[in-house]
Design a protein around this nucleic acid. Sequence first.
DNA 1: TAGATTGTTAATCGATTAACAATC
DNA 2: TAGATTGTTAATCGATTAACAATC
Lengths: 216, 216
Amino acid sequence: MIMTRVKVSFAPSIRRLPSYLIIIRQALQNGESYISGTVIAQELNLEPIQVRKDLAITGIIGKPKKGYPVAALVAAIEHFLGWDKVHKAVVVGAGNLGFALAGYREFKLHGLEVIATFDIDRDKLGAIVHGVPVLPLEDLSAFVRDNGVEVAILTVPGPVAQDAADRLVEGDIKAIWNFTDHKLDTPSGVVVHREDLSSGYALLSVMIRNQRGREA
Amino acid sequence: MIMTRVKVSFAPSIRRLPSYLIIIRQALQNGESYISGTVIAQELNLEPIQVRKDLAITGIIGKPKKGYPVAALVAAIEHFLGWDKVHKAVVVGAGNLGFALAGYREFKLHGLEVIATFDIDRDKLGAIVHGVPVLPLEDLSAFVRDNGVEVAILTVPGPVAQDAADRLVEGDIKAIWNFTDHKLDTPSGVVVHREDLSSGYALLSVMIRNQRGREA
DNA sequence: TAGATTGTTAATCGATTAACAATC
DNA sequence: TAGATTGTTAATCGATTAACAATC
């Protein structure tokens, strides 16, 4: 089975949208009706032109001198990201990270509804974490299929990641959010996004070294 | 206090190094003495030229026809990332995510030694998580200073992130790994790297939407 | 009106990819 | 030796930044 890389254009812009959303929501709560790209940029230490370019991809149109209509902007970003619709999700691997992600409020607020977690460990079965049950891995395929689960958050140990992915594919999963350090072989119809904490740690490590060099 | 953005050149390459390391370590365990960029690329669905360019920044030199010496390559990558030295760390915010990160094996293996966690919740104090104590937030500055802590993993709720960062700066922290959704104001001598799970979720969401469009 | 802020078009910058001579 | 794989130099691609006319 060939793993096709799903290319996303404007990926850097898309990644910045959630941070804009936080600022803009604050403005909304403060009762402001317009917010300028300049203000958003200032808040996030970015260039105003970058904010304008990024917001353009959501289709929103601003007013010269005033800025962007706050309420419409929130709606436009959420719609562009698909965060205005509910996506059913499961967490596969009820370990520490899985537990944390299952309860991550930020996701729940944006349409990601975790309805079950799965684990191989018999001792965990039957437990309720963050209001959802821990179910046996054997039931994963059937559960995904029967409940129309679209997204799987994969936090199992690396060596069993592919096995879990196979079960998900069998259940006709739409997307796998892969928190393991293994690449997954999946059919091209399945979206896979790898979230790699090690890559962030690598960057941090090099930043520390550079900073040190500068001080010395 | 001005937040200066620490620019890292070759950031994308640096982010890919950890995934190379996994492949190369496997080769080492299999007793292979050389590994080619072609093989690494194949394993990770990348272009061979990209692997070669990335490995070049670590200073390692390959042999035409054979590839790169496995043991030396592992050492070179680890040294380049500073993963061959121990960095003392604390987790600030002993919630679900903090708990998960405190016990993340991958970090421990690469020189990040978590020696304490901190929380504001009195009920958690005195507990031992993953072998390290939960201490009161009031002691954070002094602890960081007295123990020469270099890295702080910040997983407190967004609204109190700046307060925690201020305490860390007071204790002369070197680097803050910011898992909150808030930007931090810190003096320019402090390295801040933001790990943004929402940005990954945004990208996943758009990928799902695009995939759907393609099927229809 | 005057001027702040937008959206667009062009220029720059950096990363990825291509081409290919060098070489073990 | 023959050829797979390297490292280097050049070309391409995409993202960021700059410049500026349009406009509320």
